[in-house]
Design a protein around this nucleic acid. Sequence first.
DNA 1: CCTGTTTACTTGAGCGCTCAAATGAAGCCG
DNA 2: CGGCTTCATTTGAGCGCTCAAGTAAACAGG
Lengths: 155, 155
Amino acid sequence: MSETRWLDDDEQRSWRTFLWASQLLHESLDRQLQRDSGMPHTYYMILAMLSEAPGRSMTMTELARRVRSSASRLSHAVSKLETLGWVCRGKRPGDARTTVATLTDEGFAALAEAAPGHVEEVRRVLFDRLTPEQAEQLRDIFEVVLANLNSTDGC
Amino acid sequence: MSETRWLDDDEQRSWRTFLWASQLLHESLDRQLQRDSGMPHTYYMILAMLSEAPGRSMTMTELARRVRSSASRLSHAVSKLETLGWVCRGKRPGDARTTVATLTDEGFAALAEAAPGHVEEVRRVLFDRLTPEQAEQLRDIFEVVLANLNSTDGC
DNA sequence: CCTGTTTACTTGAGCGCTCAAATGAAGCCG
DNA sequence: CGGCTTCATTTGAGCGCTCAAGTAAACAGG
């Protein structure tokens, strides 16, 4: 057992500021999408990732990797998206294990309608307040964080 | 209706990187606390804020403001924390409206036990990967974001 | 006073998420 | 081939959160 390396005052301040801000930021995004387009942010991202894939289709596993989601979360989400008629599930012939999720035309339309308002909100809560240098710093910081989390969580 | 100002490639990259990273970061924190101390991160923060208050007590409204929570979320959370025996509710004599939440000794003990592991996790996912300059940039960025969200959400 | 408004907080329904367990197909090996 | 492991995905229980509605005390103006 080693001594706990507590956060000093500067770190404490950085930490809580980031924590509160990112929490409020996520909530703002979620609220805007829910209010204006009737979907949570997670679902928006699933639709967005599918829309960028060839044939608007992706394996469940691949899709989960893309949206940084657990298999379980994605499965529940796609079930809901299926009942909304925005996504449909299919099987690949010759492979009974993998399921392929495909964005329907209705799903694409819902995404297209939600996108402008969502982008506005992203600007409002983040980019409109940041200098270009800060946007760059932001990316540099979280690329490191992301790389770390991607590697260590699989252990 | 104005044209949508879409995100350019740099912004898109910054945005998604931040989004995925902060999401995974929150999940990591939550998982660690849930696993090692049986509480979600939100509850940890409530306990932490109470522990720093004079008399380990705070009004529900003030506590909600401190943890950036809705009144509803806080009320539900404090109800749960009460059943765990970590917090208790009380009334101020001469004021029948305001409820005062107080951290119990058991609550303080639970917090004290959870703290070292939590701080380790914060270091592991964030500060150990950042230079001191980056920690400063992080604070500068999110102070702006936070100020913006605090002011605009009340409208 | 009485009435309408604001303040402080609670409640309940519904939903998305987590975790653990289950299903069932594929691949591997003696 | 038969059994073991791994892989891809689903399922169900339980929980925290949101939103809308409800309660009830304090206050403000006629």
